[in-house]
Design a protein around this nucleic acid. Structure first.
Lengths: 263, 263
DNA sequence: TCCACCGGTTCATTATTTGAACCAAAGTCT
DNA sequence: AGACTTTGGTTCAAATAATGAACCGGTGGA
């Protein structure tokens, strides 16, 4: 791993929950030498990717990322495009809907909308990293991503979040096979207790999965017909989204989705 | 300069105008060796900061920046806060208003709104880098930034964009002195022909300039009273913005602004 | 006053970065 | 068709930058 990658990996530690991280805390989280860490953090600071809380000396993300995101969104307006469909589904089914993109170690939600007026609702932290193996978003993406990537992810230690988190690579591989066949992923309390979720991938120009649309829902509100409704809504939205983005739905997925919609 | 900083500098070359850059084009723009460039670009790609157009092999910004910007905006909601004031001024004076943050080599607009219904309007490219020495935004920021930073900027070669672009460091230093005294910056066709602009800084917790609010306007529509109106609107907005962000307006600026508002 | 903890720095050792030359593929001109 | 150009990408010895154990100085308790 190059120095550049090592340094950029540090940025992954920031999230809405953990917006500021000090030198010592970084050391605990990474087991990189303090000297090295300091030099990397300083480099990131000099480049505008980090800035320091001048009182606590803790680091937080800097203004450079704002500009880059604006350029990216100007180039490939995924967030804007995805927003329309997430909102539509959320308003339709009154549950928490989100869209996520893959990062190195998991999916990152780029937009979420809770269409619910329920008292019990799924708590959702935007910009958190959702682990690939424990979430429907993650599995839906892996199922349609290249094998080397999947292999890399599944060869790492698979953290257990609940009693139902799948941690056996072989089981997961089998599940991915199922997901490939039916075109969507379903998980039951594998990341958070009492929460189930359904996800479908959406595809880029090469027919590769570039992101996911997903619904998270308290297990108490799931039943057979609602399950079907969610899947139908997701499939329809993803189909339109792929068209908007100029993406290509792989033929076998298109077929699986078509049969699902017919029923 | 560390390897990390060198690599991150590459990201500055992307803008809305130039969303994709190939290896050879990078080489032309940077005079860095092709081998090195390729390794850096690959590292950025591996980290999700870049992705490649699979047909042309050109690089463009990747999905990692979206997540980071979301976290940053969650941590320090500058864009959201600034939007309110930019919109307000734009609707008031019917001209192009924007807010910008400093990057390494210039200001980067984070939000812009054209409140105008004129036929002649200023063309504005969001996420473009506005050079410090040639724009009112840039000068307004430099005037209230630390001297070492200013020195570093002014010691570089100052590119000329129009016949009126100031390229003499001493003249600019003198101008900064004036800006410090009156609390705002004014430029006349120094970056684009036929366009004038006015800018005020806004301040962070330490009383340091962290960004600017600015108005760009075709020279044909400028007159004495409108000039004053613009400055008043900007000063009022920046004062409120600093309050929202928990920023501290340096006492001499506060004084200058107060006298300006009284008139 | 002492001690622990914080961010930050130093410098000899070590490992990575660098870049000139090279390769392969795709396009372009004759 | 064949030569030439331009593209992205790779190689490996030489040059340079990254590394990390030990150290520094300030701060906030006990």
């Amino acid at each position: 791993m190059s120095t550049i990658e090592k340094a950029l990996t540090l940025l992954e530690h920031f999230s809405s929950n953990r917006p500021e991280i000090g030198l010592t805390e970084f050391k605990k989280r990474t087991s990189i030498d303090k000297g090295t860490l300091h030099r990397h953090l300083t480099a990131l600071k000099n480049s505008g990717f980090l800035e320091q809380n001048y009182l606590t000396k803790a680091y937080r993300l800097g203004p450079a990322v704002i500009r880059l995101a604006a350029v990216r969104e100007n180039t490939v307006p995924i967030v804007k495009t995805v927003k329309y469909y997430v909102d539509r589904i959320a308003n339709d089914i009154h549950e928490l809907v989100h869209a996520a993109l893959p990062q190195k170690n998991g999916m990152s939600a780029i937009y979420a909308k809770d269409g619910g007026n329920h008292k019990v609702r799924v708590n959702f932290d935007e910009a958190e990293i959702l682990p690939f193996h424990a979430t429907s978003s993650g599995l839906a993406l892996l199922a349609f991503h290249d094998d080397t990537f999947v292999g890399k992810i599944l060869s790492k230690k698979l953290v257990s979040f609940t009693d139902s988190t799948p941690t056996n690579a072989i089981d997961i591989q089998a599940n991915l096979e199922t997901i490939r066949a039916c075109g969507f992923a379903f998980t039951d309390q594998s990341y958070e207790d009492e929460v189930s979720s359904v996800a479908v991938p959406f595809f880029g120009v090469k027919g590769d999965a570039i992101g996911t649309l997903a619904i998270a829902i308290p297990v108490s509100r799931i039943n057979e017909t609602f399950h079907e409704t969610m899947i139908t809504k997701l499939i329809t939205a993803s189909t339109e989204l792929c068209r908007d983005l100029g993406g290509q739905i792989p033929t076998n997925v298109a077929k699986a989705w078509a049969t699902k919609l017919e029923v």
